[in-house]
Write a protein that binds this DNA or RNA. Structure first.
Lengths: 125, 125
DNA sequence: GGGGCTACTTACACAAAGGAAAGCGGTTAC
DNA sequence: GTAACCGCTTTCCTTTGTGTAAGTAGCCCC
């Protein structure tokens, strides 16, 4: 129930700092659109209206905000070309590829979890 | 800007299903307390009031809700011992250990990201 | 000069997440 | 009997995230 007060827990400090990092990571990729946007732009660079068209359901307000957010975190870069009218292209940076293994883990775990939950619902009924 | 319509994107379908799984995983571990609770109970099984004491800041309403959630997802088990008064112990299940590598990835990425952002703020100023 | 396009911004609204405080049913301690 | 503890639940409120609709600045076309 409780380890004694004096015996430090196995790796409590390491654990809380690792928790802090994990929560930071979550806060960066969290939200309905962020991962989708990153993946979308990793497939190819696109303009605002093209992204809006591909991500059916996102409003321009949210898209603008999310793009700003992603740019701040260095996942994407905003290029302005002085054509008339001006062309603005959003491009995934190399840094967005640093998410690859994280997304891989998330996806692998998420996939097996869905299976597990489906299984346990079947067994329950 | 846009790949031609007929040439299918590198792995678009795989990508959207992987996105779906990743979002599922996020929805399960998402929230201010879930990961902390899992890690807390992985260190040792505990009673409601002990958890509440260890996680300073969580309200009983939220704690009860989160514990229910985690139990539904099979991360923890609720044991009732018929002592007087009844003792209730929450214990991390083996399944919660399946999160280990995911938490590891999150934490590793989060740690390096914080460094990177700090760096880029320094360079900017 | 009216309408349309692009890349947004602004104002408003709503729903979900989370927190504060009180209560509750059962028990033990005094 | 009354006070306290445990494991919650209930009520109310604030904050955060997201959505809808409209507007705007700059340019083009006719």
């Amino acid at each position: 129930m409780r380890t004694t007060i004096n015996e430090p827990l196995p790796d409590k400090e390491e654990c809380t700092s690792s928790l802090k990092n994990a929560l930071d990571a979550l806060s960066v990729i969290n939200g309905r659109w962020k991962l989708a946007l990153i993946l979308c732009l990793m497939q190819s660079s696109k303009r605002f209206s093209e992204i809006q068209h591909e991500m059916t359901g996102i409003s321009s307000r949210i898209l603008a905000k999310e793009l700003k957010d992603l740019e701040l975190n260095d996942f994407i870069k905003r290029h302005v070309y002085p054509t008339t009218p001006v062309t603005i292209i959003y491009e995934a940076t190399g840094y967005s590829r640093s998410l690859k293994s994280l997304i891989g883990e998330l996806s692998a775990w998420g996939g097996q979890h869905r299976e597990k939950i489906k299984e346990s619902i079947r067994n329950q009924s």
